[in-house]
């Protein structure tokens, strides 16, 4: 969308994720949005945003108990659920239909996402976490 993107390697260490995100936020006050690419990165990034006191739109990938809590508290705007149920379940169903139904196939590709989780559906998703979500 034409906006400047700065990608930082925050490592896999929860303490370093927090301090490096805080460093980047402090170094460039014009940053107005963060996209964290994992649930533990998301939780550490939320702590960094809080410590710096920045007004930042924080969005994440994947679900965890901590991320759901942050969404409900309003610290994280939304997270993107991979929807593994669709990724893993549908292919098997389609393969079965293809084999047993003389090449029966849906007429077009079926997207498995993106599945957004935000404050509106967080509670419902949490109830199904580990089962259907």
């Amino acid at each position: 969308m034409g906006q400047k993107l700065d990608m930082i390697d925050v490592s896999n260490d929860v303490a370093q994720i927090r301090t490096r995100t805080a460093a980047a936020l402090q170094a460039d006050p014009s940053i107005d949005a963060l996209l964290a690419t994992g649930p533990h990165v998301c939780e550490a990034a939320a702590a960094a945003v809080k410590a710096v006191g920045a007004k930042v739109h924080l969005a994440c990938f994947d679900l965890s108990q901590g991320v759901m809590k942050l969404i409900k508290e309003g610290q994280v705007a939304f997270t993107i659920d991979q929807q593994q149920r669709l990724q893993g379940y549908l292919p098997i169903v389609f393969l079965h239909l293809y084999n047993s139904g003389a090449g029966l196939l849906p007429g077009a590709d079926i997207p498995s996402g993106p599945g957004f989780v935000d404050a509106k559906n967080a509670d419902k998703v949490l109830a199904l976490a580990g089962v259907d979500r």
Binding site: N12, D13, V14, A15, R18, H40, E43, A44, A47, G66
Partner: peptide, 17 residues
């Protein structure tokens, strides 16, 4: 220190340390 600060743990913690 990490567990009690963040209340999280993951299988990759301490990798390459």
């Amino acid at each position: 220190c990490q567990v009690f600060e963040t209340n999280t743990a993951d299988a990759a913690k301490g990798n390459l340390k």
